[in-house]
């Protein structure tokens, strides 16, 4: 199959990057940098969180789990919105790369969701005595995980990649519209059924160092997301474009290394 020719590659500078062939090397160049930044920020953030930030008056050392829990929860939400954004772009502009980006982001978002739930449970046990509490935030987080799993399951179940991309895009958009509704309804449900005043959102009041720690971890998570998404998108590109000449040459190059 013929590759892009010069006519395709000229034209509006940003739209060039909508071509998988052009984006592939760009992603390859940037991903290792993002990974390095993520590693550095994570080390810094964990250091601040576990050694520099003061011990909490009420919760002791256990509270330090929020340095992982809160950034993971933020990222899980943010990544879903980015996924929905790329899905919308793909449906409107009919660019394959946008769909591939959305699919590359999903597993990372699901991972953050899972980490947020797990660290929430780890925080809950020593603090409140149970591993799980049907608190509004955790419950919404759980439902968000199901939305991610649904997206991944749907896109993996459809063999035709174009149908998979577009169906997943619709699902992501429907999910994005429903996320505020779900959050609101779970909030409502939680306050009405509230027995004990257990809430994992009652983080200790923030000293500046604590905020700094969380910010560092959030930025680390963000850089990590970029790195993994770029790496995943590269393999998606190779897979989708496997019938083209440039991929053939690339695979040979990778094989001979």
């Amino acid at each position: 199959m013929r590759d892009l020719n010069e006519k395709d590659l000229r034209g509006k500078s940003l739209m060039r990057f909508a071509s998988p062939q052009v984006f592939y090397p760009v992603a390859g160049r940037f991903a290792p940098w993002f990974a390095a930044v993520a590693a550095v920020l994570a080390v810094a953030g964990l250091y601040v969180g576990f050694f520099v930030a003061p011990t909490d008056f009420q919760q002791g050392e256990v509270y330090r789990v929020i340095f992982i829990h809160v950034p993971a929860a933020w990222m899980s939400m943010f990544v879903y919105l980015v996924m929905a954004f790329w899905s919308a772009v793909g449906l409107v502009l009919n660019t394959r790369l946008s769909f591939m980006m959305a699919r590359a982001l999903a597993p990372t978002g699901a991972m953050f969701c899972f980490v947020a739930l797990w660290t929430g449970a780890l925080w809950g046990k020593p603090t409140w005595g149970t591993y799980w509490v049907w608190d509004a935030r955790l419950t919404s987080q759980l439902l968000l995980l199901f939305l991610y799993l649904g997206y991944i399951a749907l896109t993996e179940a459809i063999e035709d990649s174009r149908r998979a991309d577009r169906a997943g895009a619709i699902l992501a958009l429907v999910g994005a519209v429903n996320v505020p509704i779900i959050y609101f309804s779970v909030q409502w449900w939680n306050t009405l059924h509230q027995g004990a005043s257990v809430s994992l959102t009652k983080a200790p009041s923030m000293a500046t160092t604590m905020l700094a720690g969380m910010l560092l971890m959030a930025l680390a998570a963000w850089a990590y997301t970029f790195a993994t998404a770029f790496w995943r998108v590269r393999s998606l590109i190779l897979e989708r474009e496997r019938h083209t000449d440039w991929v053939g040459a690339e695979l040979e190059r990778l094989g001979s290394r």
Binding site: F146, A157, G175, N178, I182, S185, V186, W188, L192
Partner: peptide, 24 residues
């Protein structure tokens, strides 16, 4: 293939608000 179960997975999170307000 496996459409029924997949359908349930996709749709159940969206059903939760309806369930909350209906039973509520």
């Amino acid at each position: 293939r496996g459409g029924g179960v997949l359908l349930a997975l996709l749709v159940l999170p969206l059903y939760v608000p309806v369930l909350i307000f209906g039973a509520g």
